[in-house]
Write a protein that binds this DNA or RNA. Sequence first.
DNA 1: TGTTGACTCTCCTCCGACGGGAGGGATTAT
DNA 2: ATAATCCCTCCCGTCGGAGGAGAGTCAACA
Lengths: 294, 294
Amino acid sequence: MLRIGAFASLNKVSVKTLRYYDEVGLLKPAHIDEQTGYRYYSASQLPLLHRILMLRDFGFTLQQIGTLVAGEQADRIIVAMLEQRAREIEEAIRAEQDQLSRIRALTHGIRSGFARTAGALEVLVKEVPALRVLSLRDTLPDYDQQGRLWEELIGYVQLHGVPVGAAIALYGEAEGGDGGDPSASGVAIEVALPLAPEDPVPPDGGGGRIRVRTLAAVREMACVIQRGGQAEMTQAYAALQDWMERGGRVPSGPGREVHHVGFKDTLDVSEHVTEIQIPISVREVPADATERSH
Amino acid sequence: MLRIGAFASLNKVSVKTLRYYDEVGLLKPAHIDEQTGYRYYSASQLPLLHRILMLRDFGFTLQQIGTLVAGEQADRIIVAMLEQRAREIEEAIRAEQDQLSRIRALTHGIRSGFARTAGALEVLVKEVPALRVLSLRDTLPDYDQQGRLWEELIGYVQLHGVPVGAAIALYGEAEGGDGGDPSASGVAIEVALPLAPEDPVPPDGGGGRIRVRTLAAVREMACVIQRGGQAEMTQAYAALQDWMERGGRVPSGPGREVHHVGFKDTLDVSEHVTEIQIPISVREVPADATERSH
DNA sequence: TGTTGACTCTCCTCCGACGGGAGGGATTAT
DNA sequence: ATAATCCCTCCCGTCGGAGGAGAGTCAACA
């Protein structure tokens, strides 16, 4: 019979740990003195402790270890548990490698000078939910003309007075919609205002140009938030582009600009806060791309 | 000014999280209503929140994030922190790959039948400290003859009545010692009994055959604990051998057998508890081995 | 004007696997 | 007898929030 300190030193565990394992019922001492409360362990408990420590080393929780060492049919499930745990570790390794690549992309961005001026410090991958919006789409000669679209849309909502929330602009090919004329020269631009999910649909307006639709949810959206006007935005786009290339990501849909603080809030451009959102996916190998294009 | 719920939904964080960040001083609301206690956030705080979430996503603690977003000279240290964090993640990945290889070694051991009978479920890598022992070394024709050494050593200690603790046998080449004759046919065996660190050295005994020495500490010791007698031990050795090969480990010193419960405690062999300890190192590439052999 | 219903507040407990320490009894060696 | 060591129980802290209780606030609707 060994006292707790001697038993602990045999396997380089702490006395606290043994007391805790007693408390949670994982490893009860062979005997406890009723007068003094002293715990006495037997050397024949060493194999059990050994097994517990090994499973702990594998990363199992003490609860899992409890089922693995106590159950009568533990032998039957231990292989399954080990394989499950192996999959978990593989998943964790993948996640950490991903983390690492994001960190490296950022450090490179800072070194090459994109970062502090262009807000690359705030590239964040997040999920965005679907969003019901009132939208107006058109193809214009260049980006700077979108003010006309905004005036048209805002004029319409002021007539009916419904929406709230940040203004959103979408650029590039239509996202499941049919507005605009892709064959026309110029750029496709869609301006949108969020609608509450259960708001009644306002009457058809603007000669059918203004529609209610739902922006698709995006599972992985690369986002940069930027203060300031057009010059800063251009830099932010450059930084985001660099970030995507460096991390092996490609855009998987039309980009968005969310104007959290925009002209409707203040005319001072330096106060504006704009979020650039680009849906991304991991770059696929050519073989995969070929599969798709056929 | 946004209420907490609106601000939270902009970035898919929970209200609880924002309240917690307020509490720890990481992100204070732009305004708090003194009457009601309501927190109001400004859209211009979005870049800060964004940065915080990105750093959280990188795995920094909130405390680290606090220094990175609050400090005046945060720009100067952020690159260093990122590189430090990258090293930490690399280290974590290495550790997890190691875990994975140990798990795979064990699942293979179970599948190939070593495990349940041979105690392979208890292979554990641990550190063992240096140990002062009273030791007797000799070269004998085979392992079964070691009983003679034990009798000689135990007879000696009963005369002087000092040591306590588990009996230890060491097999193979001398570990810094000079006992035995390596050129003789047979196997080198050392039997030892632990001595308290400050025990006085007993007088020279057994015609100089019994010495006091210190077993070296071992940083990585592969251990199996086994109940039973010689048949079980042989299987345990086989399992341990298989485990080492599978995990790319090679022995880096003489193996030990620690008799936690042995003949001195009970004659019933099935009650015996023996720990096999083999110092290991990761298998080296030939280049490294060549370096050493010169 | 009252009444919902959604939102928000503070305060409390809980999670895992122990570590640190206070305050007090037990054992062992001098 | 005394000192040193060991052991006990009990309580608090870790990290980043989640969950819930009980109460107050806000906006819209009848």
